[in-house]
Design a protein around this nucleic acid. Structure first.
Lengths: 332, 332
DNA sequence: CTGTTAGCGCTTTCAA
DNA sequence: TTGAAAGCGCTAACAG
């Protein structure tokens, strides 16, 4: 591989000049620039990005930490981030935290030790305290689907409360009054906020929240099954079920059908997230859209603006969920 | 951040010695090693990986190119690769090619210019000729779900022919003789091989392949719908449908149900890939397992062995698909 | 507008 | 077993 030296001697200019045309930032005369460019293409020269990084203290890489690499939620998120960053010539280094405190710590350390210019992370296991402390380090960190008051400027988040509200309202609007609720893990803020919104919708319509019809799930298929099972064995009366995400909704549907329910006539179900498959399951799932892809885009823009000084980027930190009407709610 | 200099002066040894303990390869006396380690931890020293890369000409990063970041197939693949590599202290730089020739080229260039030690790629748009030429470069490249005879040692692939065979056989074993087939894009080797296996199963059972009951799909939901629609408008008789992947199977199911079919009684459907959601759709999809996660693992091992000289790694290049029996095939 | 000259922080011969 | 010293390929003052 040709180096900058060879280019400079072939073009008959100095190192610095070649560097300038590579980074086309300072003024170089057109004539000189042309000479250099010719020399570069003649030698098939490509700058060594490692050397650039060492000298400039910038790696043009941003570290991403997600809980899992698979799964529709993170897939969309990564796709949103990567497409934006890639277009700006930056690359992404991706690692996983598996929603566990230790592995998240480790993942972040890993990324930081890799000299990423910035991090975009989706954290589920770490405490806010730890996170705030982390943010004092020299690597800027941005947070997906999370809001930490002290670090609000670094967060991109969804209005989960509104989402919970919309889901409940969709059911109420179709005449449902006995509504069961399968939540995500209580320790996750998303779960809490969605539930708060749910309760607000209920009380706005003078409906009481029934603790018997509440179950704490795990955001996975199994949680949906377990929750519905519990409601059913307790022989509770309800016509509708809100699941705090689509995966649980899918699990609940499967369980319901296995136990003789006709869907949605015997039981209306609404999910949350609008993952790609929600329209493939049967009946097509009515759900709340969670614009993760867009949020990924926005997180990337935030980095581009703050870390790479890109101009003219409008940032908005808060995203709104929206109801996606499909076939899983029956009119009562 | 402390540098190696500070460590060396605090420990009262030379640069070289510190470097040796970092890379704990050469012999350093226990006493010296201990002194250095103490100095390192006292300063909170962490080697600068960029500088290491520049000096050693190794970046400890492997580039991954997938068609898409979302989608269950690539998610599993990346997860397999990342977990193995990460455990070895390597990191992955991920980018996308969107199945298009130009973007795949560009993605590979991008990764190479990033000085990756190796590449693991899933290519769909590039010609074998181009690929073979690429392999002559200095960055070793490994191929997922692909077999290029000249580069077989660098490929990890599935026996698609066998998969196609197993799918057809599953149907035949349940008494089906009129079988429709929705293929993936013809230009993809996977599509071709699956079809070949399908035909072999047919002829082994003295069944003729009916061209009328063949449709070239796109490996997406829409392909499944379009294919089934065509068969239906032509008013062809068939009791079973094989779809060359699960996404198309899901699309076909939706279409069938919208047109009054009871599944699987009126139409048996089998998919291919065993993506996570195949067990969530209704009826639960009988399909052919494609062990992408394991294949990802293996690709990572291949890199660890060949590029990072890790020992004791058994490599096998070829993987076998297997039938996953669920509920979407009716006994005739 | 262009060139000179220090480094960036580490690895790696080569000697001792 | 340890140290000295020469880079790795580039950027970024600074000077001209």
């Amino acid at each position: 591989m040709a180096t900058i030296y060879e280019v400079s001697s072939l073009a008959g200019v100095s190192l610095a000049t070649v560097s300038r045309v590579i980074n086309n930032n300072t003024r170089v005369s057109d004539k000189t620039r042309k000479k250099v460019e010719e020399a570069m293409s003649e030698l098939g020269y490509r700058p060594n990005s490692i050397a650039q990084s060492l000298a400039s203290n910038r790696t043009n890489s941003v570290g991403i930490l997600v809980s899992e690499l698979h799964g529709p939620f993170f897939g969309q998120m990564m796709a949103g981030i990567e497409s934006e960053l890639r277009a700006a010539g930056k690359h992404v280094i991706i690692t996983t935290g598996h929603s566990e405190e230790d592995r998240e710590k480790e993942g972040i350390d890993f990324l930081i030790s890799r000299n990423c210019d910035a991090l975009i992370v989706h954290l589920e296991g770490l405490t806010d305290e730890y996170i705030i402390n982390l943010s004092k380090g020299s690597t800027p960190i941005y947070f997906m689907s999370k809001i930490i008051p002290e670090l609000e400027e670094n967060c991109i988040y969804l209005d989960n409360e509104l989402g919970g509200y919309l889901a409940a309202k969709a059911l109420i609007d179709k005449g449902h009054t006995q509504i069961a609720y399968i939540s995500g893990p209580k320790f996750k803020p998303d779960s809490k906020d969605r539930l708060i919104g749910h309760k607000r919708a209920l009380s706005e319509h003078n409906l009481a929240f029934n603790d018997e019809l509440y179950f704490e799930g795990d955001f996975k298929e199994t949680g949906g099954k377990a929750g519905l099972k519990q409601f059913l064995t307790k022989k509770l009366a309800f016509t509708a079920l809100v699941c705090a995400n689509d995966e649980m909704a899918s699990g609940a549907m499967t369980y319901a059908r296995e136990h003789g329910f006709a869907l949605p006539q015997d039981l209306s179900i609404i999910g949350f997230d609008n993952i790609i498959f929600s329209r493939h399951i049967y009946p097509k799932l009515t759900t709340i859209d969670n614009p993760v892809y867009d949020m990924g885009h926005m997180a990337a823009k935030l980095v581009l603006k703050n870390v790479y000084q890109q101009k003219n980027l409008t940032i908005n930190h808060s995203f709104e969920p929206a109801l996606i009407n499909r076939d899983s709610i029956a009119q009562l």
